[in-house]
Design a protein around this nucleic acid. Structure first.
Length: 433
DNA sequence: TCTGGGGTCCTAGGACCC
DNA sequence: TCTGGGGTCCTAGGACCC
């Protein structure tokens, strides 16, 4: 599978993930055009190929495609994220049997490192086809596989696998001739490249860079001058220079958001406050899940920006916490405090949310609080407990108590004097496990 | 009537310090 | 006449991703 000194990445991605999950459990949806809708059945968050072919863009509001839906029998489904997460976990488990190095990039995408796996398969394509067959057999979900010398190229290969039927859902740049690669890259719009969005795409086209091949041929230094280090890196990745590493362990979140659009307009601070308390609880759960506390809570409210006939208002405020916390009551309290400061009467609110910011690892005051003991055995045991904690955390654990207790304790435990404090705030902090 | 939710990184500019 | 310069931290905004 190629030179072992070179990097090889695969990107495995579920086709129309949410639609495919629904179809897996309801076969009658298989020959029908299907969209999965966002919260409140607002807009399309997933489209089947038939729906895409009808020109329905991602995020299209459901109410705007009502006519189209009637004409073509489009089925609109409310989303079921619990189901999708479960299916995602099943697929990721399968992928881990193919490579020890997997990065779960999103609910429907994973990068695999194929470094050193060359001996196991006739070719990356053979492996890709095997993945497809196994995932289909075990989950009945369709996936595409792209293989390349960088993550950006693997993403692009995945696009090729999807769009060019000739490839039968698996495309591999690492074994492709330069001529054939160039032929393909000249036929793919530059906007398909990972990291090239609407704005940068437009700017690139204005510079005469229209295809992926054009971007690959552009000098990285020029790209850096015009767009910054990110596009320079993208350009290098397209050239087969791997700049982005596999991130196997998901780094902890740096902020946690919880927000929703309301199904109907909300007018009162009381109603907004109720929603915000719910969001605070949900965000707090995630926060504690990563053993973190947050130092500030951001609250925001918005009216419906699509309603020109309504007065518009949008505001947000960040409330610092006196002490970092992950306590739902503290988070909700800060959110409500912020709400009181930004709430304006008379507006029809459409959306509200909170963002937990300044996330820090949860640290707990690590001390030992107990009676120093009336007998020798208990004092020796207590000292041993302190030693064990010091060993475990690699730092001083401090006894919380009075000078008198410590003296007595020292006497009973062979004159060893523990470090002690009478103020728990002076106890050293250790990171939650 | 009805228009998603949750993230990251980079950059520029201001404040502040020495 | 002539008015520094470098480093760091913070924030807001822009761009991207799924």
């Amino acid at each position: 599978m190629g030179d072992p000194t070179k990097q090889i990445f695969a990107l495995v991605d579920v086709n129309n993930m949410y639609v495919s999950c629904e179809r897996a459990f309801n076969p009658r949806l298989r020959d029908r055009p299907v969209v999965v809708l966002s919260n409140n059945d607002g807009c399309a968050v997933a489209r089947s190929n038939e729906v895409k072919a009808l020109g329905v863009p991602m995020g299209a509001p459901w109410f705007q495609m009502r006519d189209l839906a009637r004409q073509h029998g489009i089925v609109g489904l409310s989303s079921n994220y619990t189901l999708y997460a479960d299916m995602s976990n099943r697929i990721m488990a399968i992928l881990r049997t193919y490579s020890p190095n997997v990065e779960v990039y999103s609910i429907d995408e994973s990068f695999l490192s194929l470094n050193g796996l060359g001996g196991l398969w006739a070719s990356p394509t053979a492996m890709g086809q095997d993945i497809r067959a196994k995932v289909a057999q075990w989950t009945s979900l369709p996936v595409c596989v792209g293989v390349g010398q960088s993550k950006t190229l693997a993403k692009l290969a995945n696009h090729v696998a999807k769009k060019f039927p000739l490839f039968d859902s698996v495309a591999d740049f690492t074994t492709m001739s330069d001529a054939r690669t160039a032929w393909l890259l000249q036929r793919i719009d530059v906007g398909e490249v990972w990291g090239v969005g609407r704005r940068i795409g437009a700017k690139l086209r204005a510079m005469g860079i229209n295809t992926v091949q054009d971007l690959k041929d552009a000098p990285p230094s020029t790209m850096r001058a015009h767009f910054g280090v990110v596009l320079e890196r993208t350009c290098n990745e397209l050239r087969g220079v791997s700049c982005l590493e596999l991130e196997e362990v998901a780094p902890p979140r740096k902020e946690i958001v919880s927000s929703r659009s309301f199904g109907t307009m909300v007018m009162t601070a009381a109603e907004l406050g109720e929603s915000l308390s719910t969001y605070a609880a949900r965000a707090g759960e995630k926060l504690r899940g990563q053993h973190a506390v947050c130092g500030a809570v951001h609250v925001f409210v918005q009216t419906n920006r699509f309603r020109d006939q309504d007065d518009q208002y949008s505001n947000g405020i960040t409330i610092p916490l006196v002490e970092p916390s992950a306590d739902n009551r503290v988070l909700a309290g800060a959110a409500l405090h912020g709400l009181a400061m930004i709430y304006r009467e008379g507006f029809k609110y459409k959306k509200a949310g909170i963002m937990l910011m300044d996330l820090q690892p949860d640290t707990q005051r690590q001390g030992v609080l107990f009676d120093a003991g009336r007998d020798r055995a208990r004092s020796v045991a207590a000292m041993a407990a302190l030693d064990a904690l010091n060993e475990r955390f690699g730092r001083d654990t401090v006894h919380l108590g009075s000078a008198g207790l410590v003296r007595r304790w020292a006497m009973l435990s062979e004159n060893r004097t523990p470090r002690y404090t009478t103020n728990w705030l002076e106890l050293p902090k250790v990171r939650a496990q």
